[in-house]
Simulated assay, not measured.
Amino acid sequence: MASSEISRVRERSKCRKRLNEIYDEAINAYVIHYSCESFYAPDGHSPLANSTRVTSIAVRNLKSGQTKTWSIHKSAELSKQLDKLSELIKANAPLATQGKNPEILRPASTTRISEILDPLEHDMLKGYFSFLQDHSDSTYVHWNMRDDNYGFSALEHRFRVLGGNPVMLQDNKKFDLARELITLFGKRYAPHTSPKGRKGRLMSVIELNKIADTDALQGAEEAAAFVNGEFIKLQQSTLRKVDVLSNIFDRTHDKSLKTNASFTDRYGIHPVAILEVARNNPVILGLIFLAGALAAAVRYKESIGSIISWF
């Protein structure tokens, strides 16, 4: 038990050091978030065979707040394909919501969908990876972007599927804020379901800290927004997410982030943990120093008294 607590103290110290380094070089750091289609097939349909299509990406400079976005919708607008995209979305919208006879209206074929969406997604990812190549030395703060399901590798795979050649970002340039909050505050720092019933620790942290998130959608809501052709809503959500993550990063750095973590969750109960708290808190460190000085003075006085009484 003691060794695991000591290990956690050391990991926490490393995390805090890394976080401070990123903050100090904030002009060379970006917050990133992206949205995609649903990971799950609709009820009554076969499991999805292809990788999940990316729908929008946003990066926000941690220092300046300047934000750049790429999306299928923007690519369609720039290539004068908005009409075709709108027609496709309308044809693929749930028939029950269109107010038309299902026998008359049929969804677009998979081939038709690919013909329209693939070039647009390729253009979007090409823009993102071009940015990544120009800023490969920067650090990217993200939330759970760590695997082939949802992550940097998922973006790389989608670009390869579409015939692109992705830029590989080194792992030491990625800072997973979701995991590092666990390192700093323990697994119980926030519930997986927020007080308002929204899924995910991110939503819980947002509510605990009263962070503005008016346009932020949950993952399933972002997927639904794309299916329903609500592109502006989707873009606003992606932009809001990088703003929220930047806010959480700043609060974590200045130690003002509110969590459900107890003292034990944060620091453990081993004496090494207590020393770690003292080292990072000037007030406590000063009190310990003062107590040590007083103890030394008392011992000195007792020694002098013993010497005098001996004579």
Rank of each mutant, 00 (worst) to 15 (best):
M1A: 11
V9N: 02
C15W: 00
D24V: 06
N28A: 13
A29F: 00
S35T: 15
E37R: 15
S38T: 06
A41M: 05
A49D: 11
A49R: 13
T55P: 05
S56V: 10
I57H: 04
S64A: 02
K68L: 12
T69I: 14
S71L: 12
L78A: 05
S86E: 15
E87W: 00
L88G: 11
K90H: 09
L95N: 03
Q98M: 14
I104F: 11
I113K: 15
I116S: 05
F131P: 09
S136P: 01
T139M: 02
V141T: 02
V141C: 03
H142E: 00
M145R: 00
R146C: 13
S153R: 12
L155S: 13
R160D: 04
L162P: 07
L169C: 10
K174N: 02
K174I: 10
L177H: 11
L177Y: 11
A178W: 05
I182H: 04
A190W: 12
R198V: 03
S204G: 08
I206R: 08
E222V: 08
Q236N: 15
T238N: 15
K241P: 02
K241M: 03
V242C: 00
L245S: 06
D250T: 04
H253W: 09
D254R: 04
D254I: 02
S256R: 00
A261G: 06
S262H: 04
Y267I: 08
H270G: 09
E276V: 01
R279W: 13
N280S: 03
N281C: 06
P282R: 02
L287A: 13
A295M: 14
Y300R: 10
E302S: 14
I304L: 15
I307C: 12
